[in-house]
Design a protein around this nucleic acid. Structure first.
Lengths: 211, 211
DNA sequence: CGGCATACGTATGTATACAATCGTGTACAG
DNA sequence: CTGTACACGATTGTATACATACGTATGCCG
């Protein structure tokens, strides 16, 4: 349903095509995507709703997040991921289990060096877990939060020694889900996300630019 | 920021001005609000993003929720309200405490019969608690969920014997927040929302039309 | 030399004209 | 009588012209 230029613009924003303070004038985007202002305006509004861009005075610029804001989003996400894992443990079907297992196997065979692929597959695993809850509201909320920080998540997985731990966490989480143990699944997910936040904070302390 | 007609249309949708299957044609809204199609289209898109309307085929209609969807949203909200209460217990300032106390006092003096006023004040209390978290992401997520079911929340508070319990819950919750006890605040909030869901389910069993 | 006011340019907000698509109703054929 | 196909109407998607407001730069006055 979402118009094609909405998707293209979102991809470009997430890919960092535009500088943080560069005004996204409608004329520029009109030329870039070869359409008129109307679809461009629509796309900008949706991206603003999604929290990916913001209006600064009259201009629209890609939204940047302070360290505090990122921590805040992470903390909310910890809560939601815990809830999602717990609910997935109750609601997941055999097919959901199968899809999660397949994704985990796929992740094990990846080269731990390519952050891009890691981030993408990691996201797919999370998304699959969300869908295993069969809860539209949880899925929507988590997708919303994820989009806002997706630009920053690339780095977390490439932190030295992190990837094997992630794989182990997911294996444990999947086991809890398949055992239909919501308590344990939630705990593992919460711990996993807390660890991710801890690493992010550590990286930030080492080099504030990594935000 | 939000255009005036966006707000007006939202109020009208929440007020139930439009029938559940009535197509919200742009021409009709254009005439109703005395503007051109462009702002109307913008408003419709935002309302669709907010989950208040949906596209059915080509037409846009006010979104209705099945019993399952409402339960789903409630369950997510239980999680978020618990998290918000816990965070408020940690982050709330003296001013937040004061505002919450004022709202509670105000609520105690209300006529328990007027569901409209009850719902509005009740919402104000929740909103104030959300803001007491000083967490933009939590506030945003909760506002989003709240909007989707606001049309249905009017009835819950007028259920026989419910209102005094609500007041007692809020007093207890506020005490926990002021005592900076996140654990207890979260538990109270979660129980409170679970009770609300229970009442909704009971009302639905008694009369499915109350949805 | 500095600050404020004004004027101009540029970008967004709004209205409308045009294009395309989807749904519907009717007519015809099986 | 029913199903299908075609055509027409209505409604949304797109493009553009017009209005407006904001930011900026420049010039004048203190």
């Amino acid at each position: 349903m979402a118009s094609p230029i909405h998707q293209r613009l979102r991809e470009d924003v997430l890919a960092g095509v535009f500088a943080p303070d560069e005004p996204l004038t409608e004329a520029k985007l009109t030329e870039r995507y070869g359409t008129s202002r109307t679809p461009v305006r629509e796309a900008l509004q949706r991206l603003e709703q999604d929290g990916l861009v913001e209006r600064r005075g009259k201009a629209v610029v890609v939204r940047t997040h302070s360290a505090e804001e990122i921590i805040d989003i992470y903390e909310s996400r910890i809560v939601l991921e815990q809830a999602a894992a717990a609910k997935a443990a109750v609601k997941a079907t055999a097919l959901d289990h199968q899809l999660l297992r397949a994704l985990l196997l796929q992740m094990r065979q990846l080269d731990a060096g390519d952050g891009r692929v890691l981030a993408e597959t990691n996201r797919a695993f999370h998304a699959q877990l969300w869908h295993a809850t069969h809860s539209p509201s949880l899925i929507g909320l988590l997708e919303r939060l994820d989009q806002q920080v997706r630009r920053y998540t690339l780095t977390t997985l490439t932190y030295p020694g992190r990837w094997p731990v992630v794989l182990a966490d997911y294996a444990e989480l999947l086991a809890a889900v398949e055992a239909r143990d919501p308590q344990r699944a939630g705990e593992i997910a919460a711990r996993h996300m807390s660890d991710a936040l801890g690493i992010r904070l550590k990286m930030y302390a080492e080099d504030p630019r990594t935000l």
